[in-house]
Design a protein around this nucleic acid. Structure first.
Lengths: 133, 133
DNA sequence: CCCATAAATTGACATCCATCGATGCATTCG
DNA sequence: CGAATGCATCGATGGATGTCAATTTATGGG
């Protein structure tokens, strides 16, 4: 195990499952608002996007992604990331694991060191999913 | 207070405060990785972006934003949002407050009802800040 | 072989957070 | 005025999460 990369970032937005449409048949005499003009995001799509966003919604993980991307060859090892972050090595390792499982980084262990790389297009794909909400 | 809208989404990325640059003067004989080619995101910028992302990194809040945007006039009241979400009214009110404080929605109370509107460009601005990491 | 180094895993702990029921506060209507 | 409605706030609670010290698992060198 360990090599399973969650590519949920690149999956195209599946059509809202239930697609309950507007339940206009119900006797809702709601006089407060106009009805919906288009379908909102589905519950499962919201769950998936929320999981992807949670992976980035942390200061330490944002800095890790940025530091990896800022490195030459977009590649960095844990030893170079621990000190600038001011966090312990296990904590950095934990955050990197979260980012890999979210499909934002890839891990490549060569010898003693583990090199992390930014997945091309992952950030752009996530940004696109946000604006499509 | 109460009407303070956090416009942190629209603020241009401030240059990394400390801007320690590359501490190339230090005797780091790191033989594992190449040095950084550009500056990574600052600690405070990461904190701010993380706070904005956390506001969206929740299935209920993503659906709320989408439902508000899907409404005619991009406007919706709480009563129309509670039932489709399957959450209690206090919970929906809490989520809407988080979204307003994050600068994603605006609140406009007219009579008995409270109308929520999507802040134009907020999602796009957030997406841009992600790709700039 | 055994030790040194790099990184991941484990276990524990404190904190944050989503959720709900109960309550309070306006506003509207009879 | 008094009842009803829409929404916000409060307090409590169970679960998720960030963090670290200690340990474990490789990998490499003497």
């Amino acid at each position: 195990m360990g090599d399973t990369v969650n590519m949920s970032f690149l999956e195209t937005q599946p059509a809202p499952t239930g697609a309950p449409g507007r339940a206009s048949t119900k006797e809702t005499d709601a006089a407060c608002c106009a009805p919906a003009t288009r379908d909102a995001i589905g519950a499962d799509a919201a769950e998936g996007l929320a999981r992807s966003l949670k992976a980035l919604a942390d200061p330490a993980r944002l800095r890790l992604v940025s530091m990896v991307a800022a490195h030459a060859d977009a590649e960095a090892c844990v030893c170079d990331l621990t000190e600038p972050l001011g966090l312990s090595q296990p904590t950095v390792s934990h955050h990197l694991k979260v980012l890999v499982e979210a499909g934002l980084l890839t891990r490549d262990k060569r010898g003693t060191w583990a090199y992390y790389r930014l997945v091309p297009g992952a950030l752009e794909s996530l940004a696109a999913r946000i604006t499509a909400v």
